Structures are given as C-alpha cells and as structure tokens.
Amino acid sequence: MLPRLWRYGWVLSRQKHVADDLVQATCVRALERAGQFAAGTRLDRWLLSIMHSIWLNELRSQRVRQGQGFVDAEQELSFDGESQAQDQVLAAQVIKRVNSLPEAQRETVFLAYVEGLSYKEIAEVLHIPVGTVMSRLAAARLKLAESAPAKAQQDKSSGERR
C-alpha cells in the first residue's frame, strides 16, 4: 500500500517531501485508529480516505495560518531531463495536462484511472456523492479533450485512431 499512498500523496501535494509526510501521517493515524477499521472492508479505501482527510485538514490549516487557498492547479512539474525517451515525453505531456485540471477533478481522475477505484469507492474516499464523481470525471474528460495537441484533434476529425 505504501507506493499507492505515496502516489496519491504526490497527486494531492505535487511535492515529494509533502507526499512523504502525508504517507507517514496516514500510517500513524491508521495505526492509532486501527480499531475503527471494519473487518471485511477494503484497506486501500480506508487508507486513501484517511490521507484525503489529513490533506484537507492541512489545507484548512494553511489557509488560516497564511491566508492561502488551494494549491495552484496551473503550477507545472519540473523534470530533470535525464531521459529523452518518447514515452517519458508523452507521460510528461499527459501529467502536465492532468495537472492543469482543477484540484477536485485532478484527484478524482487519479483515483479513477491510476488507482482504479470505482465511482462508489471514489465517492467514499472523497466523502462526496457518486453523481459528483461522475460530473467531475466528465468535466475532466472534456477539458483534457479540449487541450489535446492539434495533431490528435486532426486525427479525431478524420476518424483515425492513434
């Protein structure tokens, strides 16, 4: 579960050291509240839900302390450029486009497409209705389709699939 927690922490914070702290805080809280885990339920959903709660509490605390809101969704990732492989370039483009989504859509996309959670599971992790999950994913798909490179748009109009 640690790699999955770290990935989700990174998606939420987009900072390695903050993701590390979120994973540690999640594990500590889970151990402290192990008695609250319901047998027969999925551990991954429980842990992701704990992390989401910790992250929201941190954002609220920052807003109170510093007068700041949510993390700016326009902030770009920086890559060290070690590898010039085509798959890494494509991955960077996809990450950049996904990072340009509003935070709520970005974390919903991550839970659906990276972690493979169902709509119901995402709703439970984020404490929102299933309809909101569906709405966020639909809006994210539209935004990602609008921001697709020109070549992909041309292929789409000609009926070619790449």
Score class of each variant (00 low, 15 high):
M1Q: 10
M1I: 12
L2E: 02
P3N: 00
R4F: 02
L5M: 01
R7Q: 06
R7I: 12
G9N: 13
G9I: 08
V11E: 05
S13C: 12
S13V: 09
S13N: 11
R14Q: 04
R14C: 06
Q15M: 02
Q15N: 03
V18S: 00
V18H: 01
A19L: 00
A19N: 01
A19M: 00
D20G: 01
L22T: 04
V23K: 00
Q24W: 06
Q24K: 05
A25H: 07
A25T: 07
T26C: 05
T26I: 03
T26F: 03
V28T: 02
R29V: 03
R29H: 07
R29F: 02
A30D: 03
A30M: 04
E32D: 00
E32N: 04
R33G: 12
R33Y: 10
G35H: 01
Q36D: 09
F37G: 01
F37M: 07
A38M: 15
A38W: 15
A39S: 13
A39V: 14
G40D: 11
G40Y: 04
T41N: 15
T41E: 15
T41M: 13
R42A: 09
D44I: 05
D44P: 04
D44V: 05
R45C: 10
R45W: 08
W46L: 06
L48W: 14
I50A: 13
I50D: 06
I50T: 12
H52E: 07
S53H: 06
S53M: 06
S53R: 08
I54K: 08
W55I: 06
W55E: 05
L56D: 05
L56R: 05
N57V: 08
N57L: 10
N57I: 10
E58M: 12
E58C: 12
E58Q: 14
E58F: 13
Q62K: 10
Q62P: 15
R63N: 14
R63T: 15
V64P: 13
V64G: 12
R65C: 14
Q66S: 06
Q66D: 07
Q68P: 00
Q68W: 02
G69Q: 09
E74D: 10
E76Q: 10
E76S: 08
S78A: 13
S78E: 15
F79A: 01
F79P: 00
D80M: 09
G81K: 08
G81D: 08
G81R: 12
E82W: 07
Q86C: 03
Q88H: 15
V89K: 03
V89M: 01
V89G: 02
L90R: 06
